[in-house]
Nucleic acid binder design. Sequence first.
DNA 1: AAATTTAATAGACACTGTGTTGACAAATCA
DNA 2: TGATTTGTCAACACAGTGTCTATTAAATTT
Lengths: 192, 192
Amino acid sequence: MRESKDDRRVKYTKMVIKESFINLLEKKDLSRITVKEICEDADINRATFYSHYTDVYDLLRKIENELLENVNAQLSQLYEKGKKVNEVDLAERIFDYIKENAKLCRLLLSERGDISFQKKVMIIAYDKIINELTDNNKISREDAEYVYSFAITGCIGIVQKWFNDNMKKSPRFMAEMVIRLTLGLINISKQH
Amino acid sequence: MRESKDDRRVKYTKMVIKESFINLLEKKDLSRITVKEICEDADINRATFYSHYTDVYDLLRKIENELLENVNAQLSQLYEKGKKVNEVDLAERIFDYIKENAKLCRLLLSERGDISFQKKVMIIAYDKIINELTDNNKISREDAEYVYSFAITGCIGIVQKWFNDNMKKSPRFMAEMVIRLTLGLINISKQH
DNA sequence: AAATTTAATAGACACTGTGTTGACAAATCA
DNA sequence: TGATTTGTCAACACAGTGTCTATTAAATTT
């Protein structure tokens, strides 16, 4: 099973493929990006691309999964310390991460990215937050699911708005706002 | 300017192209759909396709625009009656329309569709609602924009959740929920 | 109903990108 | 070092694209 991920050649190849792809993605729409183009830009043979990825969408999916893993790692880091974790701190950590990886996140989380993936990001980020919040507050499961859907995609929208404002607001500000809005939604749902 | 949109042949051609495209879109991803495929399914010459649309994406964009126009028309209808319009009624009208055109809306508004378009739908739907709501309540424009972004994409999420539940909830239920959540968000923003 | 306009078709064109193959070369391991 | 993986490469047949011309058929106009 142990793939020779260590092989320097492979590492290099994958690296340049990703770099070239991301650079192209900044310039043009995903649907217009060809394998040929990526390989020319990366200066590798097309067959090499196919030995690593089945097509452009496969490549994108793998890049997305890496991002998901990274976000997960960010959150786990916080929890490992064993302390009781504040929701705003948790959210702030995510916004920090997004800001640090702005180039890639802009591409994957913007209006041009795909929602399924964006929801995944928000769900892992939200998961811990929401569980903590709802364990105490009793809301009907069914209604709650609609409110969650609203909140999760709402989050996507607010992150996109943040991008469009060139991330002028601080991660802390964003974190506080998102948590405030989420808490608010949960309260509304409790009222009925 | 007046294009011969009246010609029966053109009408028929455009109709079968759209039908075939939508049927294909139900089966496979947009990126995998070819002009050739559409034309074979529609039993139309490929050159005929190119005389109406530049490519598959152009076709999609035109279908999306038609939907936008229809939603707009729905809302205008309500306003024409001159009466004072209730926000929930307005929202309900949208949900009714979505339900009536479920086949297409599922494709365009689902996780697989593109967010830019979905935001456009929500914005025209929300526009009138939000203006009425915020004229009375004073929120800082800047903060408000973030809350709007949250609410607009939140709406997309709740519609998708509705689809995933096979639209079991009534349009009225959905309308009430969306308005309640939106009003709630605005109130939270007023508190600070 | 005939004349005129306009759309759709068949088929061919060069072109671009795809996915695969078998030979070669470079990195890894003993 | 020499043997063995395993990544890389150039060349291939093939799909779909977008455009064009001559021809047919259907609509609109007179």
